[in-house]
């Protein structure tokens, strides 16, 4: 993640030196907000990866590939999906650092955790 970010920064710097002002602005925005995404599969009655560490601002997308419906429900109920049928997705963007434990409210033995950590 850090490597990718620095490459983008360098690209922005190069862009700043070599392209007109309009393009420069675009490049700058790109550099400031790199696409931070993380996928979690719901498969075989489990969240995979079960624990994942992401940077603040990361959008996590859960995809249910089971034939059974599942949910993504924060233990403290701060976020929750509707019931996800096969191939349904749920996304949530984590902005604040912290540990976010969640589970499937239909099959509560299924648990997972998103760790949001800067840098």
């Amino acid at each position: 993640m850090r490597l990718k970010f620095s490459i983008l920064r360098r690209a922005a710097l190069v862009a700043a030196l070599t392209v007109p002002a309009v393009a420069f602005t675009t490049a700058k925005i790109e550099a400031a907000t790199p696409a931070k995404v993380q996928a979690v599969a719901i498969k075989g009655f489990a969240f995979t990866p079960q624990v994942v560490t992401v940077a603040p601002g990361t959008t996590v997308t859960w995809t249910n590939v089971d034939e059974d419906p599942h949910t993504v429900t924060a233990n403290d109920k701060s976020f929750h999906s509707a019931a996800l049928d096969t191939d349904d997705k749920f996304t949530f963007t984590f902005t604040k650092p912290g540990e976010y434990a969640y589970f499937c409210s239909l099959h509560p033995h299924m648990t997972g955790k998103i760790v949001v950590k800067a840098g």
Partner: peptide
């Protein structure tokens, strides 16, 4: 005497 129970509501993380 028949007793009908609901054990699927308000399930707790990590539990049954």
């Amino acid at each position: 005497h028949f007793v009908a129970l609901n054990n699927v509501a308000n399930l707790k993380p990590g539990g049954m």
